[in-house]
Design a protein around this nucleic acid. Structure first.
Lengths: 139, 139
DNA sequence: TCTATTGCGACTATTCTAGTCCTGTTTTCC
DNA sequence: GGAAAACAGGACTAGAATAGTCGCAATAGA
């Protein structure tokens, strides 16, 4: 069973690419090639990141994408939630009324705790951390 | 995005049912009715639990299922892994060789840490705990 | 104006999940 | 022995979700 989806993986890769090429603009084509991502798919991914305000886009010839925020201010949690929405352990909490068994469900509280732990951990990692980690393996 | 699948949810419900009706045998039909689970689907779920050794089955008329282990020895982690396999944050670790980018992936270690945290937490909750929690809401 | 590039919605393909069905085997009871 | 009540297990199907593609409009620079 997998928690992180493909588009999230791609999205993070793209962000790392942008953060690493500090300030310079990169076109979707460039990112796609360097990060091994189908270009059309990447377009959609970048669009989400733009709407979320993590990335800036520039249309037209010589256009492309660049980071809209300081990479130290972008957390992995934010990236994940941008790409695949809030991650829930179980459906209990989703939908309007959730599970009708909720009041007697012995699991709900436990699932909630896990969700919080995950979120807390992912909130602690920033885009800058990822870039640094990558640089570290270069030497 | 959802982490816990339907069959896992059902499987745990079935186990709680069995643990609560201490020692007595219950047929798939009984469990299905009381727990609101499609019976044919439940059959397959119980089979997995049997193969894993968490549940004992008894064929023939008057047959049914009963717990094979002390509910204090069965953890939620075990139930989850029985139903949906080891839960991985990302594909990186699955498949034989995993992701070719692994050696330079700034995320792999982080995903691993999250996986461990989740596993540790779920390992700390037993079937007995769930039953107790359920009993608590009765009063 | 021509070209490179993003924006966006519609569409398709593939995979995964949930659920069903059918046939066989075992056991109990009459 | 035979019928009935159960589990065993594999094949199959429907539907949802994910991944990926395509086409066209809008924009900006040369």
């Amino acid at each position: 069973m997998e928690v992180i989806r493909r588009n999230t993986e791609y999205g993070i890769r793209a962000l790392v690419h942008l953060a690493a090429s500090h300030e310079k603009m990169a076109s979707a084509g460039e990112i796609a090639e360097s990060q091994d991502i189908p270009i059309d798919f990447l377009q959609k991914i970048l669009q989400r990141l733009v709407r979320r305000g993590i990335v800036k886009s520039h249309r037209g010839s010589q256009g492309g994408f660049s980071l809209a925020k300081d990479p130290r201010q972008v957390t992995v949690l934010e990236m994940v939630e941008t790409m695949q929405g809030k991650l829930a352990m179980n459906k209990c909490f989703l939908g309007k009324d959730g599970c009708p068994r909720a009041p007697r469900c012995p699991l709900k509280q436990n699932w909630l705790s896990v969700e919080e732990k995950i979120a807390e951990f992912l909130r602690g990692i920033t885009l800058q951390d990822l870039v640094d980690q990558l640089r570290g393996t270069d030497s």
